[in-house]
């Protein structure tokens, strides 16, 4: 982090010992294709962990299991101490209100304006707000990502980087305690990718969130990670800091840094 324009990760928020996500022995297969084969990982409060792995190694499947979009075949996923695999729909919604999810494809609703996109999670989680309060929250979220002027635009009118920022604003609107990022810089040019990575770090410092980031963009990994979990053959192959893994002699890990 020698670049002075980059948000520094040299003094990240101190992670507490409180575990916000505990993944124990998670297995998931699609037909004969074993994707996760006993994956274990703990995410502590205030910590940023990047899950690093090859394309198709099951990284996205892992975070979709955490948020309850996919059900693991075996194992346990505890979010805030609750096993998400055993929760009913309403209980799962309560957990989801505290967890933000940034989709790889942004998943902005095409038929809604930016304002409606941002209001949607608030309305659906039955958060009682006056229109003025809702407007203030929308504008605060957009200010955070520097796109207040786009509030009445449609997603189709925005560039790829702007859409990613709006998706991030929508993720942040409920002030989540955990944010799950699915390939946040994929499909973006290096400059926009760097801006998004810096924004993630800035927002994490501002809101003291914990983050689980799925990525294979090493620039993004270096900027955002407190620790890196390397996902190989469905298991957590290694868990260490960026520098620790970079110095590793393990040929499998070396491939990612070459």
């Amino acid at each position: 982090m020698t670049d002075t324009t980059t948000i520094s990760r040299e003094s990240p928020p101190v992670a507490s010992q409180e575990t916000v996500i505990r993944i124990s022995g998670v297995k998931k297969s699609f037909g004969h294709n074993v994707v996760l084969d006993g994956f274990n990982l703990d995410l502590h409060k205030g910590e940023n962990i990047v899950v690093l792995g090859k394309s198709g190694s099951g990284k996205s499947v892992l975070i979709k299991c955490i948020i309850g979009l996919l059900r693991p075949d075996d194992g346990e996923i505890q979010v805030f101490g609750q096993n998400v695999t055993e929760l009913n729909h309403d209980e799962l919604d309560q957990v989801r209100a505290r967890v933000g999810f940034l989709f790889q494809s942004n998943a902005l609703y095409d038929s809604m304006t930016v304002r409606e996109n941002l209001e949607f999670p608030m309305r659906r989680h039955w958060i009682k707000l006056s229109q003025q309060e809702a407007n203030e929250m929308v504008m605060e979220a957009l200010d955070n990502v520097g796109l207040a002027h786009t509030v009445d635009m449609m997603p189709i009118e925005l560039s790829g980087g702007m859409r990613k920022r709006i998706a991030l604003a929508r993720t942040l609107i409920l002030k989540p305690e955990i944010i799950l990022y699915d390939e946040p810089t994929t499909g973006l040019d290096p400059i926009t990718g760097k801006e998004i990575s810096d924004l993630m770090v800035e927002l994490q410092a501002k809101y003291q969130t914990s983050s689980l980031i799925i990525s294979h963009d090493m620039k993004c990994v270096e900027r955002t990670a407190d620790k890196i979990a390397v996902l190989i053959e469905g298991k957590c192959h290694a868990l260490d800091s960026f520098d620790g893994l970079k110095a590793s002699a393990d040929p499998v890990i070396k491939q990612f840094f070459e």
Partner: peptide, 16 residues
């Protein structure tokens, strides 16, 4: 289109 761009998943995550 909503399915392939993960908008349906986003709805589910948003308590819908």
């Amino acid at each position: 289109s909503m399915k392939v761009t993960e908008q349906i998943d986003a709805m589910e995550v948003s308590g819908t």
